[in-house]
Computed example of a mutant assay.
Amino acid sequence: MKIAIVAAGSWGTALSLVLNENGHEVCVWARHQSQIDIINQTGMNEKYLKNIKIPKSIQFTSDIKTAVEGAEIILFSVPSQQYQKTLEIFIEGGFIRKEVMLINVSKGIDMNTLETISQITQRLLPEQTFVTLSGPSHAEEVSQKLPTALVSASSSRKAAERVQDLFSNDYIRVYTNPDVVGVEISGALKNIIALGAGISDGLGYGDNAKAALITRGINEIAYLGTAMGATMETFRGLAGVGDLIVTCTSMHSRNRRCGILMGKGYSFEAAVEEIGMVVEGAYTVKSAYDLMIKFDLEMPITTELYKVLYEGKDARVAVNSLMSRQKKHEIDEYAKGFDHWE
């Protein structure tokens, strides 16, 4: 089938390689003709995916009509803060037919509406079939055909399984999950914790600190996710703890790399400029902080990172604030069941 991919960043390009290898016709839309010209001339998307050859069978275009014409699926790989605006352009241009399935692979929460990508889509296109594809996956490794497991989440089992079939091959394994919100919240908030892990590394703290951050981080993700209607099991799986581990420990993670630079003394703006690509966690910190207030939750890691990014708090002082919080039970919500514990 023909599949249109919206945006030619690292993940969109890597997934175009997978779909092309799986025998599909792939057309990638990019906003800037200059980027397309470089790809067509060199056969590579060097800025976003270094040293990876792109087959000539994958088409790149800056014309939306060319990209979506005849496509059965449109895959959006735009930064989360640009998703609504991009989707509106496609809707207003009449480029999304009712029978077309939409797949989203970006990970974030809209800062203005505090909506996940599925919620934005539901509001603008309530009848459209929608799937989110997530999980522990670096574009660099997928483009090198290294073993990767993903999660296909949708309210429609048929749609989730269709995407499972679409991407599965001998190095991509896809699991299905009906918990769309849980998968989305996991993918978005793990970027916050990865920023924190990077800051910890940049400050020179060790593995002990990172293990604590990851473990307490998945708790915060689950607190917010379940408050929004997600299922706890999702946070124990690939989209939850799996994606959190890979993002907090790998140098492929731009969120972690940004945090490392901040821990070494870079301003947030200077760190982002050094990375040269969108750092989703920076925006998600604010979205998650606002959602925390909305749902009246306690999320100390999110709170401290918000203060570092948006209030200028010193990162080392923020870590000290976390370490000196009031002593508590590790699993407060279950502690009342330990009446026999004396």
Results as ranks from 00 to 15, higher is better:
residue 213 L to H: 10
residue 192 I to G: 02
residue 186 S to A: 14
residue 166 L to I: 08
residue 4 A to L: 02
residue 134 S to Q: 06
residue 41 Q to Y: 05
residue 43 G to S: 11
residue 264 K to T: 06
residue 222 A to T: 15
residue 14 A to R: 10
residue 39 I to C: 11
residue 161 E to W: 00
residue 193 I to C: 09
residue 116 T to K: 09
residue 321 S to T: 13
residue 140 E to C: 01
residue 2 K to N: 11
residue 331 I to K: 09
residue 328 K to W: 01
residue 216 R to F: 09
residue 187 G to Q: 12
residue 95 F to D: 03
residue 173 R to L: 11
residue 119 Q to C: 01
residue 142 V to S: 02
residue 293 I to G: 07
residue 181 V to L: 13
residue 229 G to W: 00
residue 187 G to E: 02
residue 164 Q to K: 14
residue 46 E to G: 06
residue 225 G to H: 07
residue 8 A to K: 13
residue 303 T to V: 12
residue 336 K to G: 15
residue 65 K to D: 04
residue 300 P to V: 15
residue 224 L to Y: 12
residue 331 I to A: 15
residue 284 T to G: 04
residue 218 I to G: 05
residue 222 A to Y: 01
residue 326 Q to H: 09
residue 212 A to D: 11
residue 250 S to M: 08
residue 8 A to C: 14
residue 275 I to R: 08
residue 271 A to N: 00
residue 188 A to P: 05
residue 232 M to A: 07
residue 184 E to R: 11
residue 141 E to M: 03
residue 320 N to E: 13
residue 295 F to G: 02
residue 81 Q to L: 15
residue 16 S to Q: 12
residue 263 G to P: 09
residue 339 D to F: 13
residue 130 F to N: 03
residue 267 S to N: 08
residue 338 F to T: 10
residue 207 D to F: 08
residue 46 E to P: 01
residue 249 T to E: 06
residue 308 V to T: 15
residue 102 L to G: 01
residue 197 A to Q: 14
residue 128 Q to K: 14
residue 276 G to H: 01
residue 207 D to G: 00
residue 269 E to D: 06
residue 4 A to N: 02
residue 20 N to M: 00
residue 273 E to Q: 11
residue 253 S to Y: 01
residue 295 F to S: 09
residue 85 K to S: 13
residue 194 A to K: 15
residue 23 G to V: 05
residue 156 S to C: 14
residue 186 S to E: 10
